[in-house]
Design a protein around this nucleic acid. Structure first.
Lengths: 338, 338
DNA sequence: GTCTGGCACTCGCGCGCCGTGAGTGCCAGG
DNA sequence: CCTGGCACTCACGGCGCGCGAGTGCCAGAC
């Protein structure tokens, strides 16, 4: 186990490197942090930390920089989450309160996160699967063509076309609409399949085909997880990445465009609190030099979606984690109110 | 007026520079294009072209590169639009035909454009203002709270909450729904205001307030131009921009995030065909080193929205214009079918 | 055992120098 | 008006070198 002082040295290295973006040496360390020991001692500690794989030198005769493992230790043991200040919290709240609809909430959240953290922000739309149904509407566009509109408790709207096997009368339509809503309104998506399976039985034989088609379309819509969308912002912050720029930024931009990759990334974070994935901990290769800080958010106690930021491994973890957590909390409040 | 040969020299310079990304000299020019004259002659022509402001030297004793003005002349007079080959056209069609809904069409279009041109693609969602109404639906969420759903001919769906001044009965609701649709279904957005203004008169006094509220919400939705959305893709192609990279890419990324800027940019292009805005012709400062190639597309003869690409001024204009035009054409077809 | 000061060593970085060569402008002659 | 010739310019890349931050190690002090 590493001694207390060595941990402090690691913490100091991380903090300095995050600030200056330059390898940090033993002398600079003792000057900027009062560790109470001489550079020589620090050098020994650094050698030990390097043996353990927490720090590394880019080349001989240069200072040390933290490794992914070093950041991991820092995040887990050496630094807490830095809470937002009161004015920051007020600013977050004010900024989010102006939102007029769900799209706007998500858009504002992305901008806010990007500004607060000066990194790339990713916000997942509230997921369908954990939401509840507010209303299901059926519209006759033509005798044998319906439009199915699903409205969720988070304000999200999904629509689907339904081609009916047979013409469907206005009376039957009204009947189906009423029955459907009385059964599923207010219920969780996951409960819907069980609630509607016997619904066709209540209709005349000639209408059953259409009813079944409508129901299967509805269930498809509910299950269709690839419909999970997300919004990205603050990509301009990528330019702050570092000096060896184009090589790093390219794969990151590519990864950001692959929404599937991002969704998987967010999905992997199971932790109830703020999750941090550092460098090579990210499965996707293009993100090996980035860290992802994410957290779930939701209108009630339960998380319905994730949000987070993508930045260089050399980032201000406590501050970023604090911002991400605070934003998630306020977005949850806003969603609960609307 | 410039002689025929000088124009050919300019064309050759543009083509070579676009290919090599390096200033092109007189000797290289005569070698790669058989102009039938010696380097010395070309040098004189180049001096003349430089006097006129069509080309410039980055520094003394280097080759020439085209200026914005030079590209402008090239696009207007020296190069046509390069049509897509038959296999390319088939590929475009195949790729777009798999789309399941409007979002998917737009998403596929963006990816396609980005791949074809190897540049940043921008696709505006079919604009509300020029579309026609397919259907208006009203749902009672609570006695005095309605949801208004507007469905357009391009498959776009907009929804709004309406808080009624007084409770509104189911019968009145059905009545309003029917009257509203019989008047506006199939009509152009711009005609709607005139078609509904006397609608409140047909209702009982107690319902008129609600009817007016619904109507004004509907009109708001129709007019609200800032709801115009767009999708962006292929930002990874920005890494191909040049060597003096971070300085150029930063403002471009920022501009791309400002959807307002992009919408204005697309909106300014009034040309019925492919519009090209080169370098400083773009009002937005961050885009001064980029060119924007855009064109309108629509389901009928009429354009309902724009799409285009953003790339370095040093781009393959004929090819890009061809790709943009072809994609717009096929997207129009797809929209017309659905 | 732990910390410290001293010391020799390493090596990346920045700077200045210089040769090379592509490219130019100009001019005199066809 | 075109061409070949010629002198000139200047960015680029390679080389050498001194500086200095940073290191590892060691002997001595606490």
């Amino acid at each position: 186990m590493l001694s207390e002082r060595r941990l402090q040295v690691l913490r100091a290295i991380v903090q300095d490197y995050v600030g200056t973006e330059e390898p940090v040496g033993s002398k600079a360390l003792t000057e900027r942090h009062n560790l109470g020991v001489s550079p020589a001692t620090v050098r020994n500690d650094m050698a030990a930390l390097e043996d353990e794989g927490f720090i590394a030198q880019p080349h001989t005769s240069a200072g040390r920089i933290p490794t992914d493992k070093g950041y991991r230790l820092f995040v887990d043991k050496l630094a807490g989450v830095k809470p937002m200040t009161a004015p920051e919290r007020r600013a977050i709240q004010n900024f989010l309160e102006g939102a007029v609809d769900l799209d706007d909430v998500v858009a504002r959240t992305v901008r806010l996160l990007a500004q607060l953290t000066r990194q790339v922000a990713v916000v997942q739309y509230p997921s369908l699967t954990r939401s509840t149904v507010r209303h299901v509407e059926l519209l006759a566009l033509a005798p044998a063509r319906l439009m199915l509109v699903l409205i969720t408790d988070t304000g999200r709207v999904e629509q689907r076309m339904v081609d009916c096997p047979a013409p469907f009368g206005e009376a039957s339509l009204a009947d189906l609409r009423a029955r459907l809503n009385s059964r599923v309104a207010g219920r969780r998506f996951s409960d819907v399949p069980g609630l509607v399976e016997d619904l066709p039985d209540a209709f005349e034989a000639e209408d059953r085909g259409t009813v079944s088609t409508v129901l299967s379309t509805l269930l498809e819509t509910l299950v269709e997880e690839n419909e999970e969308r997300l919004m990205i912002g603050g990509t301009a912050n990528l330019t702050r990445f570092g000096h060896d720029f184009p090589l790093v930024i390219r794969p990151v931009l590519e990864a950001l465009e692959e929404q599937v990759v991002l969704l998987k990334l967010l999905g992997e974070a199971k932790d109830p609190g703020v999750t941090v994935r550092i460098g090579h901990e990210n499965a996707h290769e293009g993100l090996n030099s980035t860290s992802v800080v994410s957290v779930g958010y939701g209108s009630g106690g339960e998380a319905v979606a994730k949000l987070g930021v993508v930045g260089p491994t050399r980032m201000d973890y406590p501050g970023t984690m604090g911002a991400v957590r605070a934003v998630a909390r306020y977005v949850g409040q806003i969603l609960a109110e609307s």
